[in-house]
Each structure stands twice: as structure tokens, then as C-alpha cells.
Write a protein that binds this DNA or RNA. Structure first.
Lengths: 195, 195
DNA sequence: AGGATTGCATAGCGAGCGTTACGTTATGCT
DNA sequence: AGCATAACGTAACGCTCGCTATGCAATCCT
């Protein structure tokens, strides 16, 4: 029943594939470059992962899962403002971390629109809870706000991919925070014009 | 001195190339698809435009020029807030215009980082003028704000490319406006938004 | 008209793409 | 040991890539 054991660690090879797709994108990553980076011959790759497309799906699912872990942890913070700030801050650092490719695979790759929308959905759910909690003003367009945040994350990823530093990307994150509606009890810090 | 006249309009062919690169990106656009769309044989294309890379440079420069025209016109509006609102609004509509590809070539294509930075620079210059005019609060980080705005534009382009409607992209633009610091004499709530 | 010049169309170049056929090697079961 | 099984390495498939050599067609100049 048993044959020759596989000479590579499937999980390690998959992680290497993630890195390649992350760094170069789906189209620009060739099977030859994958086999070289993974240290696996083409037939072994096809036996273990199907074909390039299914390998990409598995790789992007892995990436998505670990990304969502960090996001979900941030979304558990007590206020929506804290949660969003944490997500943006984490993203800025992750997108410019030394040793990993710049930017974010999920936010950059054209074929991962569904994952992006799933991310947006999770953020929106948290924002809606915040509205119910009185943490965000009633009437807050959580759909708009979540779409905005994903757009900002995307822009941050792009900035990192263009060679932006951690500080550059953090500046975007910081600036975006001003777009969050202040909680109902917060004061208006523009002193000159009481309406 | 003179030979057979060329059987196609160079400008029209270039515009078609712009459309192809815009729709599919540089890497995903093949010379074969270009010649087919432009109605020009490969040798004619190479004679008229050099090679694929130089054709792309010419096409992207054309795209960049016409984009900057709209941006510069918006930047002439009286206040920075008006100018930014106009840019975002224009972008949202342009990115989802029927008959043209979704999104924005300059904001999407990885190789056009220099153009993106040039765009950011123009916006920053306008913001600095606004600070001098008292139109934006003194101490406003115009570098951060301009980077933020380009990030948002990029996110808008990505949203459009993922199939987002004009309303979806406009919502991002609208939400982003809240991140602009209010002018010293302005009221507290955000009344101004992209029209 | 005749030569020079230039663009055209066809057809093909070498290289790289994603993928697989083929023969070999290493394992577990009997 | 000997067989079935499964992964291995090599080498190649058909195809598309960006690009060009070759020969024909259309123009201007004399």
C-alpha cells in the first residue's frame, strides 16, 4: 500500500509557494520558479497540489486564514476605534516587514476579490455591533465605512509595494483614522465654531 | 525620400494600446492581443512604436497626461477641500465609466510608481498652498495627507476593478473626505462631500 | 517610366510557459 | 526476497510569448 515517501515537507513547500505568489503575484509566478523555490520537481508539485491554479488557491487560503486570525483578534478589542486602529497599524507593519514580501497578497491580487469582500464583511459586522453598542453614532453607514477601510488597506499595500517605508504606510493608517465618526459623547475639538 | 504611407492612424492605434494596457495591465497584455486590437501587424507595430515596453511607456505617458489635466483643473478650485472632493469624485466616476476599463491604469499598474508619486506631489503642493492660505490648519502634515489621498484613490481603483459600482466607489470617496482636517473657521460637522 | 524608399503581410525565430510521459528509486506488505 | 505502490528526476510535449527576416505593395523624386 505504501510507496516511496515524499522527500519534502508539504507544508513547508506550501509556505514557500505562498511567499512566491505573495511576492510576484499569480500571473508573474511561473511553475518553474515555484519548483525551484520549493525544491520540488514539476511532477511532484503536480502530484501534491494538482496544478498551478489549485496550488494558488490553497496558498491564498492559507494566507487568508492567517491574515484573518490577526484581524479577528483586533476586532475583539473593546471599541470599534481601537479595533480599526489596530488593524491598520498591524497592516502597516506587516506590509513592510523585513523578510516577507511587501504589501499584502489578498489586497493586491486581482483574483482575490472574494476574500477582500469577506474581510470587508467582517469589519462591517464589527462596526454594526459598535453602532448597537453606542460606540459609533447611530446612522453610521457601516457599509461605506468598511468599504473605505478596505480601500485604505489596499492603498497601504500598494504604497508598501511601491517601496514605501513602515513610517510611510503608518502615516496613511494614522490619517485614515480621522475618517472614523467620533462617538456620540466625544467633544468636537474645533473650538472656534460651536454650531 | 518617401515611401508607402502607413495604413493606420498612429494616434488611434496608440489610444487602442492605452485601452488594452488599462484593461489588462502590462504583463497580461500580449503583443498578439495588441496587434489584433490595433489592427496592425507586428512589424508595423515595432516600426511605429519600438517594442512592447516603449509602447507601454508612450501609452502610459498619454494616459498620465490626460489624467493630470483633470487633476490640475480640480486643484485650481478655491479651497483644498473643494479640490480634493472634486478629484475623488471625478476619480470615482472615471473608474466606473461605461465604455472604458474599470479602475485606473496609473494607480493599478505596478510599474507606474513614479507617476503615482508625481500625482501625490501635485496634491501635496496644493495642500501646502492651502496651509499658507489658512485654508488648512497650520501644522497639517501635507505629506501624510497626500499619501493618504493617493492610497484612497488606489483603493477606489481596486474597488472598481473588483466590480464595484459608481455608488460603491463614490461611497469610499465620500467617507475619505472626513479625514481632511477642517479649516480653522469651519463648522464641526462635515457638510462638504463629493457631489 | 524607373529607382529609391517605406510600410505591409506572412511566416517563423528562440525562449519560456503550464503540464505530462517515462523510466528509476525507495518504501511497506507478504 | 519479491511484489505492489508511490514519489522521484529527466526530458519533452504543445503552446504562447516577444520579436524579426523575407518578399511584396505603394508612395515620392527625377
Amino acid at each position: 500500500m505504501a510507496g516511496r515517501p515524499r522527500s519534502f515537507d508539504r507544508d513547508v513547500a506550501l509556505a514557500t509557494a505562498v511567499e512566491q505568489f505573495w511576492r510576484h503575484g499569480y500571473e508573474e509566478t511561473s511553475v518553474a520558479s515555484l519548483t525551484a523555490a520549493m525544491g520540488v520537481s514539476p511532477p511532484s508539485l503536480y502530484a501534491a497540489f494538482g496544478d498551478k491554479h489549485r496550488l494558488f488557491e490553497e496558498a491564498s487560503a492559507t494566507y487568508f486564514r492567517s491574515t484573518c486570525e490577526a484581524v479577528d483578534r483586533a476586532l475583539e478589542l473593546p471599541t470599534a476605534r481601537d479595533a480599526v486602529a489596530r488593524i491598520l497599524d498591524d497592516a502597516a507593519r506587516a506590509h513592510t516587514r523585513a523578510g516577507t514580501p511587501s504589501g499584502c497578497l489578498m489586497l493586491t491580487e486581482p483574483r482575490l476579490a472574494a476574500q477582500r469582500d469577506e474581510l470587508r464583511r467582517r469589519i462591517q459586522d464589527r462596526l454594526e455591533r459598535a453602532v448597537e453598542d453606542g460606540d459609533l453614532p447611530p446612522g453610521t453607514r457601516t457599509d461605506h465605512l468598511s468599504a473605505f477601510l478596505v480601500a485604505v488597506l489596499r492603498g497601504m499595500s500598494g504604497c508598501a509595494r511601491d517601496g514605501g517605508s513602515t513610517e510611510d504606510v503608518l502615516a496613511i493608517a494614522h490619517t485614515a483614522m480621522a475618517a472614523l465618526p467620533s462617538s456620540p459623547g466625544a467633544e468636537c475639538d474645533d473650538a472656534s465654531a460651536p454650531r
